[in-house]
Amino acid sequence: MDLLDVRPGKTVEDSRTDQRESFRDLASSQLPRLYSIARRLVGDDAEDAVQDCLLKGFQRYDQLKSAESGPAWLTTILVNSCHDVGRACARRPQAIDFDDVERFSLYRKIAYEDPFPYSDSLHLDFLGEFGPEDVHAVLMRLPPLYRIPLVLVHMEGFLAKELARRLDVPLGTVLARLHRGRKLFEKELWEYAEETGLLKEGTS
Protein backbone atom coordinates (compact mmCIF):
# COMPACT_ATOMS: atom_id res chain seq x y z
CA MET A 1 0.00 0.00 0.00
CA ASP A 2 2.93 2.37 0.41
CA LEU A 3 6.28 2.89 -1.22
CA LEU A 4 7.70 -0.02 0.76
CA ASP A 5 5.60 -2.21 -1.49
CA VAL A 6 7.67 -1.19 -4.51
CA ARG A 7 9.43 -4.40 -5.45
CA PRO A 8 12.90 -4.59 -6.96
CA GLY A 9 12.69 -3.87 -10.68
CA LYS A 10 9.40 -1.97 -10.34
CA THR A 11 8.90 1.79 -10.52
CA VAL A 12 6.63 3.88 -8.27
CA GLU A 13 4.23 4.13 -11.21
CA ASP A 14 4.16 0.32 -11.45
CA SER A 15 3.31 0.22 -7.78
CA ARG A 16 0.44 2.67 -8.24
CA THR A 17 -0.88 0.50 -11.05
CA ASP A 18 -0.73 -2.50 -8.69
CA GLN A 19 -2.64 -0.45 -6.11
CA ARG A 20 -5.38 0.39 -8.64
CA GLU A 21 -5.62 -3.26 -9.62
CA SER A 22 -5.78 -4.34 -6.03
CA PHE A 23 -8.60 -1.84 -5.28
CA ARG A 24 -10.51 -3.09 -8.30
CA ASP A 25 -10.14 -6.70 -7.12
CA LEU A 26 -11.37 -5.81 -3.64
CA ALA A 27 -14.30 -3.65 -4.84
CA SER A 28 -15.32 -6.10 -7.53
CA SER A 29 -15.49 -9.01 -5.06
CA GLN A 30 -17.55 -6.90 -2.64
CA LEU A 31 -20.07 -5.49 -5.14
CA PRO A 32 -22.96 -7.92 -4.44
CA ARG A 33 -22.60 -7.42 -0.66
CA LEU A 34 -22.31 -3.63 -0.93
CA TYR A 35 -25.30 -3.44 -3.25
CA SER A 36 -27.35 -5.64 -0.94
CA ILE A 37 -26.64 -3.40 2.07
CA ALA A 38 -27.33 -0.26 0.03
CA ARG A 39 -30.66 -1.67 -1.21
CA ARG A 40 -31.86 -2.01 2.34
CA LEU A 41 -30.48 1.35 3.39
CA VAL A 42 -31.60 3.57 0.53
CA GLY A 43 -33.80 1.38 -1.73
CA ASP A 44 -33.82 2.52 -5.35
CA ASP A 45 -30.86 4.87 -4.74
CA ALA A 46 -28.61 1.86 -4.02
CA GLU A 47 -26.70 2.03 -7.30
CA ASP A 48 -25.88 5.74 -6.78
CA ALA A 49 -24.70 5.05 -3.23
CA VAL A 50 -22.45 2.15 -4.32
CA GLN A 51 -21.01 4.21 -7.14
CA ASP A 52 -20.22 7.05 -4.72
CA CYS A 53 -18.64 4.50 -2.37
CA LEU A 54 -16.42 3.13 -5.17
CA LEU A 55 -15.20 6.58 -6.17
CA LYS A 56 -14.46 7.63 -2.58
CA GLY A 57 -12.83 4.28 -1.81
CA PHE A 58 -10.59 4.60 -4.83
CA GLN A 59 -9.52 8.12 -3.79
CA ARG A 60 -8.71 6.98 -0.25
CA TYR A 61 -7.29 3.55 -0.94
CA ASP A 62 -3.92 4.54 0.50
CA GLN A 63 -5.65 4.93 3.91
CA LEU A 64 -6.50 1.21 4.04
CA LYS A 65 -4.29 -0.40 6.69
CA SER A 66 -4.49 -4.07 5.62
CA ALA A 67 -6.11 -6.20 2.95
CA GLU A 68 -8.07 -8.15 5.59
CA SER A 69 -9.89 -5.01 6.76
CA GLY A 70 -10.83 -4.09 3.16
CA PRO A 71 -14.48 -5.27 3.29
CA ALA A 72 -15.19 -3.48 6.62
CA TRP A 73 -13.40 -0.36 5.37
CA LEU A 74 -15.58 -0.31 2.23
CA THR A 75 -18.69 -0.84 4.36
CA THR A 76 -17.88 2.27 6.40
CA ILE A 77 -17.52 4.33 3.24
CA LEU A 78 -20.79 2.89 1.91
CA VAL A 79 -22.64 3.72 5.13
CA ASN A 80 -21.57 7.34 4.80
CA SER A 81 -22.49 7.42 1.12
CA CYS A 82 -25.93 6.03 1.99
CA HIS A 83 -26.26 8.51 4.81
CA ASP A 84 -25.55 11.36 2.39
CA VAL A 85 -28.22 10.03 0.01
CA GLY A 86 -30.56 9.62 2.99
CA ARG A 87 -29.92 13.13 4.21
CA ALA A 88 -30.78 14.48 0.78
CA CYS A 89 -34.07 12.55 0.87
CA ALA A 90 -34.82 13.63 4.45
CA ARG A 91 -35.07 17.23 3.34
CA ARG A 92 -38.35 16.37 1.69
CA PRO A 93 -41.14 17.35 4.08
CA GLN A 94 -42.49 14.35 5.97
CA ALA A 95 -45.32 14.92 8.38
CA ILE A 96 -45.01 12.32 11.12
CA ASP A 97 -46.93 12.66 14.35
CA PHE A 98 -44.41 11.12 16.74
CA ASP A 99 -46.77 11.40 19.72
CA ASP A 100 -49.13 9.17 17.77
CA VAL A 101 -46.26 6.82 16.82
CA GLU A 102 -45.08 6.65 20.43
CA ARG A 103 -48.56 5.65 21.63
CA PHE A 104 -48.89 2.91 18.98
CA SER A 105 -48.27 -0.67 20.08
CA LEU A 106 -48.31 -3.34 17.39
CA TYR A 107 -48.64 -6.02 20.04
CA ARG A 108 -51.81 -4.46 21.44
CA LYS A 109 -53.14 -3.58 17.99
CA ILE A 110 -52.93 -7.22 16.86
CA ALA A 111 -54.57 -8.42 20.07
CA TYR A 112 -57.37 -5.86 19.71
CA GLU A 113 -58.04 -6.32 15.97
CA ASP A 114 -57.62 -10.11 16.17
CA PRO A 115 -56.94 -10.74 12.46
CA PHE A 116 -56.71 -14.53 12.97
CA PRO A 117 -59.69 -15.40 15.19
CA TYR A 118 -58.94 -19.13 15.30
CA SER A 119 -55.24 -18.80 16.01
CA ASP A 120 -53.62 -19.56 19.33
CA SER A 121 -50.43 -17.80 18.23
CA LEU A 122 -51.95 -14.61 16.88
CA HIS A 123 -48.88 -12.40 17.05
CA LEU A 124 -46.51 -14.88 15.41
CA ASP A 125 -49.08 -15.62 12.69
CA PHE A 126 -49.24 -11.91 11.93
CA LEU A 127 -45.46 -11.68 11.49
CA GLY A 128 -45.46 -14.92 9.48
CA GLU A 129 -47.45 -13.16 6.75
CA PHE A 130 -44.46 -10.95 5.92
CA GLY A 131 -42.00 -12.26 3.35
CA PRO A 132 -38.59 -10.63 2.68
CA GLU A 133 -40.11 -8.43 -0.06
CA ASP A 134 -42.79 -7.19 2.33
CA VAL A 135 -40.27 -6.36 5.06
CA HIS A 136 -38.22 -4.48 2.50
CA ALA A 137 -41.28 -2.55 1.31
CA VAL A 138 -42.17 -1.62 4.90
CA LEU A 139 -38.61 -0.42 5.62
CA MET A 140 -38.72 1.76 2.51
CA ARG A 141 -41.76 3.55 3.95
CA LEU A 142 -39.62 4.85 6.81
CA PRO A 143 -37.72 8.13 6.41
CA PRO A 144 -33.99 7.37 5.80
CA LEU A 145 -33.05 9.19 8.99
CA TYR A 146 -34.71 6.39 10.99
CA ARG A 147 -34.35 3.53 8.53
CA ILE A 148 -30.56 3.65 8.24
CA PRO A 149 -29.72 3.12 11.94
CA LEU A 150 -32.40 0.44 12.20
CA VAL A 151 -31.02 -1.57 9.27
CA LEU A 152 -27.39 -1.17 10.32
CA VAL A 153 -28.03 -2.34 13.87
CA HIS A 154 -30.38 -5.21 13.07
CA MET A 155 -29.09 -6.40 9.72
CA GLU A 156 -25.40 -5.59 9.87
CA GLY A 157 -24.99 -6.08 13.62
CA PHE A 158 -23.53 -2.64 14.32
CA LEU A 159 -23.45 -1.39 17.90
CA ALA A 160 -25.13 1.99 18.49
CA LYS A 161 -21.88 3.56 19.69
CA GLU A 162 -20.03 2.25 16.64
CA LEU A 163 -22.71 3.77 14.44
CA ALA A 164 -22.43 7.11 16.23
CA ARG A 165 -18.70 7.11 15.50
CA ARG A 166 -19.11 6.14 11.85
CA LEU A 167 -21.86 8.69 11.21
CA ASP A 168 -20.17 11.30 13.41
CA VAL A 169 -23.29 12.04 15.48
CA PRO A 170 -23.78 11.87 19.29
CA LEU A 171 -24.70 8.47 20.74
CA GLY A 172 -27.91 9.93 22.23
CA THR A 173 -29.02 10.97 18.75
CA VAL A 174 -28.47 7.45 17.37
CA LEU A 175 -30.38 5.88 20.29
CA ALA A 176 -33.29 8.32 19.83
CA ARG A 177 -33.43 7.59 16.08
CA LEU A 178 -33.34 3.85 16.74
CA HIS A 179 -36.22 4.13 19.20
CA ARG A 180 -38.34 6.18 16.79
CA GLY A 181 -37.36 3.92 13.89
CA ARG A 182 -38.56 0.81 15.73
CA LYS A 183 -41.86 2.39 16.68
CA LEU A 184 -42.37 3.60 13.11
CA PHE A 185 -41.50 0.14 11.78
CA GLU A 186 -44.22 -1.41 13.97
CA LYS A 187 -46.81 1.12 12.86
CA GLU A 188 -45.89 0.77 9.19
CA LEU A 189 -46.07 -3.05 9.42
CA TRP A 190 -49.69 -2.77 10.48
CA GLU A 191 -50.60 -0.12 7.90
CA TYR A 192 -48.84 -2.06 5.13
CA ALA A 193 -50.73 -5.23 6.10
CA GLU A 194 -54.03 -3.36 5.95
CA GLU A 195 -53.30 -1.53 2.70
CA THR A 196 -52.02 -4.57 0.80
CA GLY A 197 -54.66 -7.01 2.03
CA LEU A 198 -51.98 -9.20 3.60
CA LEU A 199 -54.25 -10.18 6.48
CA LYS A 200 -57.17 -11.08 4.23
CA GLU A 201 -54.88 -13.36 2.23
CA GLY A 202 -53.70 -14.89 5.48
CA THR A 203 -57.17 -15.78 6.65
CA SER A 204 -58.50 -17.03 3.29
Partner: peptide, 14 residues
Protein backbone atom coordinates in the same frame (compact mmCIF):
# COMPACT_ATOMS: atom_id res chain seq x y z
CA UNK B 1 -39.61 -12.14 16.68
CA UNK B 2 -39.87 -8.64 15.24
CA UNK B 3 -36.10 -8.30 15.48
CA UNK B 4 -35.67 -11.61 13.64
CA UNK B 5 -38.00 -10.37 10.91
CA UNK B 6 -36.00 -7.17 10.60
CA UNK B 7 -32.70 -9.06 10.37
CA UNK B 8 -34.09 -11.48 7.77
CA UNK B 9 -32.76 -12.13 4.27
CA UNK B 10 -32.36 -9.29 1.80
CA UNK B 11 -34.72 -9.87 -1.13
CA UNK B 12 -32.76 -8.61 -4.11
CA UNK B 13 -29.57 -9.91 -5.68
CA UNK B 14 -27.61 -7.38 -7.66
Amino acid sequence: ELRRLLAGPVPADI
